[in-house]
């Protein structure tokens, strides 16, 4: 057991994972916009430039097409680039290199060429940054085969999954939620800042975690949604309802067994997703249960997801649309009431 507690923000945990791996693996380097002396707009490369210098911590021009393509070429040539796409919303200017090259070259080469790159990118809104700086787009990335997709919800997982991502021989898209980063100006969910071991460790990609055990209903979520779900579970407890919260942690591979086993126990499923509702993560989670055995469900699965609208700027409109604990509580109660 850890001798002493040491709480880190997600941003610090990510930076620590990168720096520890860079010390033991010269192939690892970081590039992206403002990752150098600034330390990343979201703080996740702080200290790296000072320790490793401009060769291995490269500020790039605002040329995502070129540097994302360069990450593919460098990874195929034996390096292990970690490349930052500042906001996931920016993927539109460089997605070709991501989904047609990074994600497909291993397949197209019959396994002879690997692309061990990590793309780290920020997700999520809630702070009125408008509809081009607030999206999650989890489903967009997870939909396309050939890249692993992880979404840590706390600093422990953030460090362990970053280390695992860097060591993975497949490309990994590492999506971190801005509201969990620990940047004061973004307003951070306190539950994301947790104890983090100083030594290196990995959190296996493709394994979900039950972060709160319960009997009556399973709430499946990821990223910021996990914290909303935990708050909801606490409120439900006061009402005598025992909710289990599953943190997906990885979207690709998806831990379908873990989800299924939890729902088998509770008989009820509520999926919480800050990404758009239709054609996305929430539908896939529900499908992964019902296509295996629909009889385990005692009530139709419920979704608390972002409506299918661009994200509005105005605070009251955005907050109205976002998932929150109250909506999750209501969905859980709806799923439970018929039996009572």
């Amino acid at each position: 057991m850890p001798a002493k507690e040491r709480k880190l923000t997600v941003a610090r945990a990510m930076a620590e994972a990168m720096s520890q791996e860079m010390r033991i693996d010269e192939r690892v380097f970081v590039m992206g916009e403002d990752v150098g002396p600034l330390g990343g707009v979201f703080g996740n490369t702080r200290g790296l430039f000072e320790e490793f210098g401009e060769e291995r911590v490269r500020d790039t021009p605002i040329s995502e097409t070129a540097f994302m393509g360069a990450a593919v070429g460098a990874a195929a040539d034996g390096m292990r680039p970690i490349v930052e796409l500042m906001f996931v919303d920016f993927f539109g200017v460089c997605f070709d290199a991501i989904y047609n090259l990074m994600a497909k070259n291993t397949y197209f080469s019959g396994g002879h060429v690997n692309v061990p790159a990590v793309i780290m990118t920020s997700t999520g809104g809630g702070y009125s940054d408008g509809g081009q700086h607030s999206q999650c787009l989890y489903g967009t990335f997870a939909h396309l085969p050939g890249m692993k997709v992880v979404v840590p919800s706390n600093a422990f997982d953030a460090k362990g999954m970053m280390t695992a991502a860097i060591r993975d021989n497949s490309p990994v898209v590492y999506m971190f939620h801005k509201g969990l980063q620990g940047m004061g100006w973004l307003g951070t969910e306190a539950g994301a800042t947790v104890n983090v071991p100083e030594e290196q460790y990995t959190v296996e990609i493709g394994k979900a975690a039950t972060v709160s055990e319960g009997e009556d209903v399973t709430i499946v979520s990821l990223g910021m949604g996990v914290h909303h779900s935990l708050h909801a579970a606490a409120q439900l407890r006061e009402q005598g309802v025992s909710a289990e919260v599953v943190d997906l942690r990885s979207l690709v591979p998806l831990d379908r067994d873990h989800i299924f086993n939890s729902v088998k126990k509770t008989g009820r499923l509520v999926v919480v997703d800050e990404d758009y509702r239709s054609y996305g993560v929430s539908g896939e989670i529900i499908a992964s249960v019902v296509e295996r055995d629909i009889s385990i469900l005692r009530y139709p699965p419920q979704r608390v997801a972002y409506p299918d609208i661009p994200i509005p700027f105005a605070h009251h409109m955005e907050q109205w649309a976002l998932p929150n604990a109250e909506k999750i509580v209501a969905a859980c109660l709806k799923a439970i009431q018929p039996d009572e």
């Binding site: 380097f29 393509g69 360069a70 460098a74 390096m79 290199a97």
Partner: peptide, 15 residues
Amino acid sequence: QGLGPAVGAALSRKM
């Protein structure tokens, strides 16, 4: 499509 990857391969050789 090939320009970015060529830049990356060249970067890899240089680094």
